[in-house]
Structure formats: C-alpha cells, structure tokens
Design a protein around this nucleic acid. Structure first.
Lengths: 216, 216
DNA sequence: TTTTTAATAGAACAAATGTTCGTTAAAGGG
DNA sequence: CCCTTTAACGAACATTTGTTCTATTAAAAA
C-alpha cells in the first residue's frame, strides 16, 4: 500500500521519478545517475544526486549506497507478481485436467496468466482454468471467465470448489457443506436451489480462490 | 506470454535464474555478477558470465553489455503493473462517486488495487469500485466483488456499463443497446429480462472492463 | 543591503562491476 | 588413446558509475 503524507515534488524531481519508472519498465533495470542526467536533460551528476537524496528522504525511492543503479522505486514496487499456468478449461461435461508436474512448470505451459500476489496470496499450487459454457452461472461465473484455482482435495465448509459428480458425470462450481449423511452443494446465487447428493458421489477437484472476467 | 521451445537448464543455470528473480523481487534492482557468485555459491565471476551467456542465448534473460547489473529477466519481465485507485463503492441506491483529479492520484487515494497491464490494457482513466449489495447479480457480479471501470460517457452497443437511472434513482450494471426511441438494458444473465427505458433517463457512468472476485 | 538557504556546475576520485584471457579438468567421440 | 567440447578457475584489466568537494548562482529571509 501507499504511504500518505508525501510532500509535493518539484517538477524536476517529478520528471526524475517518471524517468526512473519508464526506464525500469522498458529496460528491466534501474538507470544510472548519468542515465538520468541524459534522460532528464540535467547538467550534472551532482544535481541528480542532490535530488535523489531528497526523493529518498521523502520515501519515493530507496537508494542503496555504493551499488550501481541501486535505485529502488518505492512508489511502485516491482515485486509480488505471479505467473499462473492456464492448464485447461472447465466445462460441465468433463473433469478438469489434473495438474501434473509438467503443467505446473510455468515455462512448459503454453498459456499463462499474470496476476499480482494479493490475488493468489502467495499460495502454492495455484493454477487457472478458462470457463467453457454457461453452466456455472449460478455461481456467478460466466462463459469465458478465468478462475484461479488452488489444488486441494478437501475444503472447509462453505468454500467454493470445483466438484466432480461421478454419477452425473458433471463438474460444477458450488459452495460445499457437509451435512449428516449427505453433502449440500449450494449455488452462489442465493435465489437458486441447492443440490443434495451422497458423499460417495462427490470428488473435490480444487478450490476457487478468485474469478477474473475481462470484458473487451 | 511465454516463449516455448526453451531448452532445459542445468541446475546451476536454474539456480541463477531463481536467484535473479528473488534478488529482483526483494531489492528492486538486478544483481551484479559478484552478487550471483555469492548468492549461488559459485566460485568465479567467469563461471557466472559463462552461464549468463547461455541464459541470454536461450532467451531467459537479456544482458546489456557493459552495463552494471544490466540483466533483464525475460522469463518474467518486471513491467506492466498498474496501481488502480479504489475510489468508492457501487450500490443500487446511489450514484457512483465521480472521479476527480484528486481521486485519480494514486498517491492520494487510500486504497489501491494492483493489477497487471493485460487486465487494464494500459488504458487511461481506469479506476475500481467495490460492489455493495447483491443488486448486480443479474450481471453476474456479487456483493464484495471489485470491478475495474473505465471513465467514459458513451459506450458501444452491447458493452457493459454502469448506468444511472435518473427516475428510479438507481445504478445498475447492464449491457447497453440503443434501439429506436428507447434504450434496452440487458442483464448479463441471459435468463433475465431486459429493461427498456427512455434515453433521457439514462446516464452512463463508466464502462466495466473487468470483474475480480476473491474468495478467501 | 546583507545573510542564508536552495540549487546548480564541473571535475576529480574511488569503488563497484563487467570483461578478457590463459589454464585446467572432466566428459564424450572417433 | 587422442581430440574436441563443455565447464570451471582466478587473476588482471578496463569501464562504468557512485561519491565528494569546492565554487557559483539564484532566490528567500533578515
């Protein structure tokens, strides 16, 4: 999160911050002081040094002494992103593909989704599925949505999970409640009726930790 | 996206890539060759240089000659993230807060959401709202969801938008279709009925570009 | 006006860091 | 067995790059 109460920057300082960000974005490493001299049309390295000190004090950047290009941009910390493999699609009529060590390997999977860490909460075993068809609308999940899944076999009461119904040969996304001698599968949409079934008939295939829908 | 067809890496090369990523994540700038020597327990800078050359050839990194710490991690380019201000909530009974230059300022807004660029598609004027209440379920949007909005006053036919209905004093998320002498507001849920209303009665408040739902 | 403070200049220095090169060791290939 | 390729070694070197220092100018305060 962002720290409030930052003092206003001079136009030169603002342009330095912008330049650092831009440089970082398209080169992947921070600029040197002399890069900034050139990039911002500043006349001397000491002027840049002078302003970097101020930016450091005010919390916009962190400088690492005696480290080349040791400028860390705090106003936008380039950390905590995640590559999640999209290992297949989920449809009503077919079980979801079981994640193997192959599909786990982000490098090996053909499609990946880039998410920030606060979405996955840095959990292990996260993968993504593309939803096919409208059979999950009662879970407020539409055709084309992408769901972030965590690979688990057991879920807490009330958690949304991908459930494979053996008899029906159908997969569905429901909130799972264990009741005496039966399992209640509750749609996310409160106006819809739950399904009751035998514990033997259900197989938890994973837990839904997020839904992402992109419209155009 | 990831490029396929990469050859397998030796364990040493793998550990170098991992170390670079880790270093980048918690320091904000790339490691020097000597950092890698220490961090990976390698005996000589030339060994690191040798392996970095290979990683460069195989497309895992890009080295920038004669630049200190000039290592760009391609297997995960640390670019394209976005701070989107969460400027308020959207509920049925009240109009959404109009984004001002104040709320636009990411530094000024108390809450922000970090998203990757492929979600916002690097558009300008993107903000986020937290959905309050279940009045948008027919748009497959639930209480607590976060919607990414783009500030526009006009939408294309069929696009999902936040619409303020003046007479009803109500805001709703619907697909907007302009028909002769009336506006059709179509719920995302195909089983639900559209609303027809007068063009004078509607006020477009923004366009929904993504929906994010986080389940524990 | 005088004094202080903020900002700029430019150069010289020192430390950090990438690069090169001759050698050696191990692992196949013929 | 010799020869080529791959990998590792370590030191010396050259460049890049951060740092420092003094002088100068501009604006603000007294």
């Amino acid at each position: 999160m962002f720290v409030k109460g930052m003092k206003a920057l001079s136009s030169k300082q603002q342009s330095i911050v912008d330049y650092i960000r831009r440089f970082l974005v398209d080169r992947g490493y921070p600029p040197s002081i002399r890069d900034i001299v050139d990039g911002c049309g500043i006349s001397s390295t000491s002027v840049v040094d002078y302003n970097l000190k101020i930016l450091d004090e005010r919390g916009y950047i962190r400088r690492h002494a005696e480290v080349s290009r040791g400028i860390e941009l705090l106003a936008w910390s380039p950390i905590s992103r995640f590559q999640v493999p999209i290992i297949g699609q989920i449809a009503a009529g077919e079980p979801i593909p079981v994640p193997t060590s192959d599909t786990w390997d982000v490098a090996a999977s053909s499609e990946t989704l880039e998410v920030t860490e606060d979405l996955t909460q840095s959990k292990e075993g996260v993968y993504a599925l593309r939803v096919k068809g409208t059979s999950m609308v009662d879970a407020l999940i539409n055709d084309g949505d992408i769901i972030l899944m965590q690979y688990v076999n057991v879920v807490e009461n009330g958690e949304m999970a991908a459930v494979w119904l053996k008899a029906e040969k159908e997969i569905t996304l429901k909130k799972v409640y264990v009741e005496p001698s039966r399992i209640r599968l509750q749609p996310a949409n409160s106006e819809m009726r739950p399904i009751y079934t035998d514990p033997e008939n259900v197989e938890i295939q994973g837990k839904v930790i997020a839904v992402i829908r992109q419209l155009v």
